[in-house]
């Protein structure tokens, strides 16, 4: 086995996901600490275009293939090519994204090659020549320290935002890798469908006779989002969610809500967070006009950072936040959006 570390990129619909750059950055860092070489692997439509961004993280090489087979079938072709490369080149570890595809490929590789796999990893560093990891367990109540034993490439499935992106800008080499044949009993993909009504911006609509604000799909998946701007009854009505959506857009996050908001159809139901809704664990949860009932808390209490904005200084949310603002969200949110936009424009 070498001391090389690889990162597998996640590309959806031709677009490179940010987690790919996080994994590539970590691969470069771990390989440097171990005295090995680092590489990023990008497969499918958009792989060639992604090579430059992946290379800028500091990895030594980018292995690419934009063959159509990777997008035509679920997981199997990616497994075939990675299994072959791992056997030939024996990297010490392969980092994969904790996305549906990343997990599917990691599971298949572990089974096919008899490798150890650690998933939901939130930290990885080198200690005594081995990779030491942190994995949250039991709904975030415990942080488990984990490592690997024995020989064989280590498979590490890492969470979104576990690692910071580095930009060293060094010149990575690009290598085009061959594509496998289509799998005989493969799961064949078609679509996307249902994109007709999907706009890139949020908009107002009417549902069951009630006005509703519909955030765009890119800000609708609270379970995957690293940042959630969440609103409660204090937002005042569906129109008020346009301000929250603008902040979510500036932060690259999603829009969430308390239950009364979706009960009253101010937002579509999949935004509802809490005991009876979705369970989320983002890096940052901004609760705007949410009182902080236990049923809401149950769905978001393991967020890394919680910021609350509420007019009522006695609102329960202030007992479990990192930063609480006793103030009017209608004033604070637009100002904050502007500050974030300006900062991002200059960085």
């Amino acid at each position: 086995m070498t001391n090389d570390i690889w990162a597998v990129a996640d590309i959806e619909g031709g677009k490179l996901k940010s987690i790919s750059l996080q994994l590539a950055s970590k691969a470069a860092q771990l390989a440097a600490a171990l005295g090995g070489q680092s590489a990023a692997v990008a497969l499918g439509k958009g792989a060639q275009e992604a090579a430059a961004a992946l290379g800028a993280t500091g990895v030594n090489a980018v292995l690419v293939s934009d063959d159509a087979v990777y997008d035509a079938y679920l997981a199997q072709p990616a497994t075939d090519v990675l299994a072959q490369l791992i056997q030939q080149r024996q990297p010490k570890a392969v980092l994969l994204p904790a996305t549906v595809t990343g997990r599917d490929v990691a599971g298949r590789l572990a089974a096919r090659l008899g490798l150890g796999v650690e998933y939901n990893v939130t930290a990885a560093d080198v200690a005594d020549g081995e990779i030491a990891m942190v994995v949250p367990a039991f709904g975030g109540q415990l942080n488990v320290n984990a490592t690997f034993a024995g020989d064989g490439t280590r498979l590490i499935v890492a969470r979104q935002n576990a690692f910071a992106i580095t930009k060293t800008g060094s010149g990575a080499t690009t290598e085009t890798i061959p594509a496998p044949a289509a799998p005989a009993n493969g799961a064949k993909v078609s679509g996307p469908f249902g994109t007709e009504g999907a706009t890139e911006e949020g908009h107002m609509t009417t549902v069951n006779g009630h006005p509703q604000y519909v955030p765009p799909p890119s800000r609708s998946n609270v379970e995957e989002a690293a940042i959630i701007v969440s609103g409660g009854r204090g937002v005042g009505g569906p129109e008020g969610f346009a301000d929250l959506d603008a902040l979510a857009k500036a932060l690259g996050g999603a829009v969430g809500s308390s239950r009364p908001v979706t009960d009253d159809e101010w937002l579509p139901h999949h935004h509802h967070i809490g005991q009876t809704g979705r369970t989320v664990k983002p890096e940052l949860y901004i609760a705007c006009g949410i009182s902080g009932a236990v049923q809401h808390q149950a769905g978001m209490q393991t967020s890394k950072y919680i910021i609350a904005i509420n007019k009522d200084k006695d609102a329960p949310i202030f007992t479990f936040c990192d930063l609480g603002v006793v103030g009017d969200l209608k004033v604070v949110i637009p100002e904050l959006t502007k500050l974030v936009e300006d900062y991002k424009a200059s960085h």
Partner: peptide, 19 residues
């Protein structure tokens, strides 16, 4: 092939800075 070497409870204590 995976080994658990330790575990620490995650504190639910938060900073609670109020502005």
């Amino acid at each position: 092939k995976e080994r658990v070497t330790g575990a620490t409870p995650v504190s639910t204590q938060r900073r609670r800075e109020i502005y």
